[in-house]
Design a protein around this nucleic acid. Structure first.
Length: 472
RNA sequence: GGAGAGGUGCCGGAGUGGUCGAACGGGCUCGUCUCGAAAAUGAGUGUGCCCUUACGGGUACCGUGGGUUCGAAUCCCACCCUCUCCGCCA
């Protein structure tokens, strides 16, 4: 969520930002939010004004009823005058009467004066309730609109319309020179009996896949290696729930916009985790940190489940785009002052993993048109896959600034400051597992059809250096 | 799945329908005392929202949502969650 004060104070500027994001659908919402916000505040002011008077009057009535010093006639006289004052809208006058500041004005002290007073106060309660009802309606409309507004880009993000314009940095690492035609992983995997697509589809349907033998072991090793890399950099490792409630998805920015990519168990009303980021964002929901606790670094390996409609004919082969995959995700809670330095460090941490695996990769600076919903600034890392002949996105590192913090109510108290303020949150993959697996297979394949094991993974595979096809 | 207990502030723990944002204790912060510390002692110590340049004022919040009432932490209803015992189970 962005700060509504921005919309209140400079709506045109906000619209310009949305224009850069290519989110034309969000733009008309800004005016709607402006109207709702104003409406809300007007209603609140009116409702609270009456309520403040009502609170005072109610207390005074309690005292009037219990006041031993007044005889019945006097009590009725006060009640009658006060009731008349309330009915005519003079709440201050009524209060003065009830507290004895002004004497009753001598109206007929009817026997039912106390009931009439109660009735008048009840009427006041009804008015407040009616206004509060309107406030509620307006607020829920307002919240709903706000949840659809994407995060705004940081000023350093290059302004271009589409992912075609993302800025690729100079690749790092050595591109291998092959003296044979490198195969894509969808050929290598089955040939080495590491990946079984037919059985996967048999079990799970479209896009199902099975890793087998050294394929499964390689994945397991990779995950352990990735977690160890993060842990060495000070990240605390977590095991997390894979099924989450909708508040968690709203907090991380998945809902309401991306509802259709998340699997849902309607009976239990829980959702399957699309990324660990969702669970990690919610870890400290509704908490207030001390400044001294920040920054906080977390890392977790989880499966990710994505229902996205996988378009026919695109990325259909292999395990590049699937409904279920493993990912190791890093997450940071920081102060606003340090979040951009922390973003650089985060990308560096992911880059270090690519270097350690000795696979050529490059950094992509994401432009405004491709920023997505939650990020203020984002970098992707891509590994080169010589068999598929393409760059594979293996990591995506974002600073969401206070966008998720506002949705999930994540705050901290700055040194010497009374008011808590929102933290900044960052997330980055380290790395996406199937794509890294693809890159390993395709980069480490050898002329005889076998695949060498990256040096850093060998200890995790009991010293094994090569993956070969099993004996026929 | 069966039976029971309970959800109040940073924590523990009170709370006759009106003066309760909430006793009391602990913690924490600032101060006094001290060479310093401990002990003792004084004051303070929630969050959101609205109004206000500011000082400050108002309002809401005692699991959530409804209801009763002039007035609800306190009464009624529904729901959620936690815990204990039994059963089942990796």
């Amino acid at each position: 969520m962005i700060d509504i004060a921005l919309i209140r104070e400079k709506p045109e500027w906000v619209k310009e930002q949305l224009q850069k994001l290519n989110d034309a659908a969000a733009i008309p919402r800004i005016d709607a939010i402006g109207r709702l916000d104003q409406q809300r505040r007007e209603l609140l002011a009116e409702g609270e004004r009456i309520q403040a008077n009502r609170n005072k009057l109610n207390k005074s009535v309690g005292r009037l009823r219990g006041d031993k010093k007044l005889d019945d006639a006097a009590r009725l006289a006060v009640a009658a005058s006060a009731a008349a004052a309330i009915e005519s809208g003079d709440l201050d006058g009524a209060l003065a009467l009830l507290t004895g500041a002004t004497p009753p004005n001598g109206g007929a002290p009817a026997a039912d004066a106390l009931d009439r007073l109660s009735g008048a106060l009840g009427e006041l309660a009804n008015r407040v309730e009616a206004i509060n009802g309107e406030v509620k309606t307006v607020e829920s409309q307002l919240d709903d609109e706000m949840l659809w507004i994407p995060n705004l880009p940081h000023e350093s993000v290059p302004v271009f319309p589409s992912e075609e314009d993302n800025i690729a940095w100079e690749p790092e690492g050595e591109f291998r020179a092959f003296d044979f035609e490198p195969k894509p992983h969808w050929e290598l995997g089955p040939a080495l009996n590491l990946i079984d697509f037919e059985r996967g589809v048999k079990i799970a349907g479209s896009r199902g896949y099975v890793l087998r033998g050294d394929g499964a072991r390689l994945q397991r090793s990779l995950i352990a290696f990735l977690l160890d890399m993060a842990r060495a950099k000070g990240f605390t490792e977590f095991y997390l729930p894979y099924m989450v409630r909708d508040d968690s998805l709203i907090g991380a920015g998945q809902f309401p916009k991306f509802r259709d990519v998340v699997y849902h168990d309607a009976d239990a009303d829980v959702y399957m985790l699309p990324t660990a980021e969702v669970a990690l964002t919610s870890m400290h929901r509704d908490e207030i940190f001390d400044a001294a606790q920040l920054p906080i670094y977390y890392v977790a390996h989880t499966p990710c489940f994505r229902r996205e409609k996988l378009s026919a004919g695109r990325d259909v082969r292999g395990i590049k785009r699937v409904h279920q995959f493993e990912k190791v995700e890093m997450y940071k809670f920081t102060t606003p002052e340090t979040s951009y330095a922390e973003l650089e460090a985060l990308v560096e941490a992911s880059s270090a993993v690519c270097r350690a695996l000795k696979i050529p990769f490059r950094r992509l600076e994401i432009v405004t048109g491709d920023l997505g919903f939650s990020a203020s600034k984002k970098y992707d890392l891509e590994m080169w896959a010589p068999g598929s002949q393409e760059w594979l996105e293996v990591s995506s590192c974002s600073n969401t600034e206070a966008f998720q913090a506002r949705r999930a109510n994540l705050k901290y108290r700055a040194e010497g400051q009374k008011k808590p303020q929102f933290v900044h949150t960052l997330n980055g993959s380290a790395l996406g597992v199937p794509r890294t697996l693809i890159a390993i297979l395709e980069n480490y394949q050898q002329a005889d059809g076998s695949v060498a094991v990256p040096e850093v993974l060998q200890p995790y595979l009991g010293g094994q250096t090569t993956i070969r096809a099993p004996e026929a």
